[in-house]
Nucleic acid binder design. Structure first.
Lengths: 128, 128
DNA sequence: CCTGCTTTTACAAAGTTTTTACATGTCCGC
DNA sequence: GCGGACATGTAAAAACTTTGTAAAAGCAGG
C-alpha cells in the first residue's frame, strides 16, 4: 500500500463536500479555506486521507510518519491527532475516528458510520 | 493483535439469514446493522462461528481466546458469552447454545436442533 | 538566542476486561 | 420428587488499559 510519499502521482486529489487535499502540492482546503498544517500534521493527515475508509493501526502510523518501531512508547501521535482535529473544527470527529485499541480511520464526509442504522451493506458484496 | 489466529479463515465469510461475519475484516453484521464488538467479544464470537455446529469446550475457548490453561479459575468466559448474547438480541439463544458441563456451540440460524442435550438418552420408558 | 514545531509529562477521561457475589439451573443419587 | 453438589447466568464493582488534553520542556533552523 502507498507509502507516505505517493511520489509518481501526476497530481492526486482527495475531495469531498468540505475537505480537499492535493497530494502533489500538499495543500489542504477546508470549506474553501486553506488549512495551514505543519509537516508532521500534514504527513499524518495525508496518510489517513490516502487510506480513507481504512483503519490504520497506531503502529503503522508511528512507523510511517515517525519511523518509530513498536518498542517506542510515545504520546506524540495522540497529540498530533488532537491538533488535526482542532484544525478540522466541527467536522473533526466526523472525519477522524478513533478505533479503540487499534488506531484511527479517516472517513469521507458522507461515509456510513458504525452505530448508524442500516446504511452499511453486508460486507459480502465487496469481494470479487 | 489478539492471540487468536484463525489463519485458515483468511478472507472467508460466514453468513446466514440474520448474521454475517467477515473473518478477514473482522466485521460482524446482524440484520443489516453492524455489530460493534470489543476485541475479546469478537475473538470469542469468531472462534465459535468459525466452528459453527461444533461444541467447543470451555477449556478450548479459554485457551484460544485468553491463553488460559486449565488451572485458571475465572468467570470471564461466561461474562463474555452473556455480552455476546445481549448483542445478538432476539436470536441469542438460537445462536449460542450452552452445552452443560462442556462448553458452548454456535448454531447457524436454521440448524436443526434436538431437544436440548439428548446425547444418548434411550427412550426406553416408552415401551408398553 | 528567538521562534515555531515537536515531543514529553502528568493527569483526566473513556473504554474494556476481570472479579466478585449471589441467583438460578442442571445433574444425579436417594 | 427432594436435596446436595456443582455449573452457569447475571449485575455491579473493581481493576486495568487506552486515549484525550493542557502545559511544559526539548529541539532545530534561521
Amino acid at each position: 500500500m502507498g507509502l507516505l510519499q505517493e511520489s509518481t502521482n501526476e497530481g492526486q486529489f482527495y475531495r469531498d463536500e468540505h475537505l480537499s487535499l492535493d497530494f502533489h502540492q500538499q495543500v489542504v482546503v477546508l470549506d474553501h479555506e486553506r488549512m495551514t498544517l505543519t509537516r508532521k500534521e500534514y504527513d499524518l493527515l495525508a496518510l489517513l486521507v490516502g487510506h480513507a475508509g481504512e483503519i490504520i493501526p497506531r503502529e503503522a502510523l508511528l512507523l510511517r510518519v515517525w519511523g518509530y518501531g513498536a518498542e517506542i512508547r510515545t504520546r506524540t501521535l495522540d497529540v498530533h491527532i488532537r491538533r488535526l482535529r482542532k484544525k478540522l473544527g466541527t467536522y473533526a470527529d466526523q472525519y477522524i475516528e478513533t478505533i479503540f485499541g487499534i488506531g484511527y480511520r479517516f472517513q469521507p464526509f458522507h461515509a456510513p458510520r458504525f452505530a448508524q442504522p442500516a446504511l452499511e451493506r453486508p460486507v459480502l458484496a465487496i469481494s470479487a
